[in-house]
Design a protein around this nucleic acid. Structure first.
Lengths: 132, 132
DNA sequence: CTTGACATCGTACCCAGGTACAGGGTTGAT
DNA sequence: ATCAACCCTGTACCTGGGTACGATGTCAAG
């Protein structure tokens, strides 16, 4: 698979692939004799993962950390456990906040705004302190 | 409450408040005779909400839309219902994806990486198509 | 009635995350 | 062997979301 196909399948610009490669998110692929990149299917999955992670509020650096958790030499597993645990906590916080926000919107849709003058609960939805 | 206090309480820079005001996220507050802004507590809550929303992957424009849902004249309620419904769908997608990601990390932590050479499920976590 | 800590404005700068462009090489169908 | 449609590199630019800077104005305490 060459660059243009990966870009099309992942729904990004070709330049973005090169950018991700420079940033270390994507890893340099093998090249043909003339220097053209040859990607495997995995490249598409990685790029899609990164875009999804961004929509969920993770930065590219964080997406990279998440990706690094995929395959880890047995020797370094302990330090990785700590990172994974921290990420799980981040994710739990995000889920909790989105759930609160969803409930606020849902409440509005079904009842709260029934008369145009009530305080709606959107601001309250995200008021807990998160985890850090 | 004056600018510096709002900024401190919301954990942002004073310039950020002015920026949000320019963007229309914050609405021009009343001024003292000499031109100093006087904010109510609500300003702090709004800014905190916006920062949380950003962490959850919403842009400033989206945060603004969410805020606008708070108080709506009865007359325009129908169009707002549509927007709120769409936002609920966005939020559901995010929750679902974070849940999948969490499960992937959890799986890794408890079992999958037990021997250093297994395929880990991180990439698969976000592979469903979202809602649009 | 001055000093210090606040505020105002406008403009210019910064970083993350891309995106575009110029100038060239490759490949494959005709 | 030529032409379109792809690829390469490097560099420069753009947008979103702030942040900093400079010149000034205000207000409370001493």
């Amino acid at each position: 698979m060459q660059t243009g196909e990966v870009a099309a399948r992942a729904g990004v610009n070709i330049q973005t692939l090169r950018y991700y490669e420079r940033r270390g998110l994507l890893g340099r692929p093998p090249r043909t004799a003339s220097g053209h990149r040859r990607y495997s299917d995995d490249a598409v999955r990685i790029v899609r993962f990164v875009k999804r992670a961004q929509e969920l509020g993770f930065t590219l650096d964080e997406a990279e950390q998440l990706l690094r958790l995929r395959r880890v030499s047995a020797s370094r597993r302990a330090s990785v456990r700590a990172l994974a645990t921290a990420k799980v906590a981040d994710i739990d916080t995000k889920i909790q906040q989105l759930t609160a926000m969803r409930a606020a919107l849902d409440g509005m849709l079904s009842a709260c705004c029934g008369d145009g003058a009530l305080e709606c609960p959107i601001l309250e939805a995200l008021e807990q302190d998160g985890h850090g």
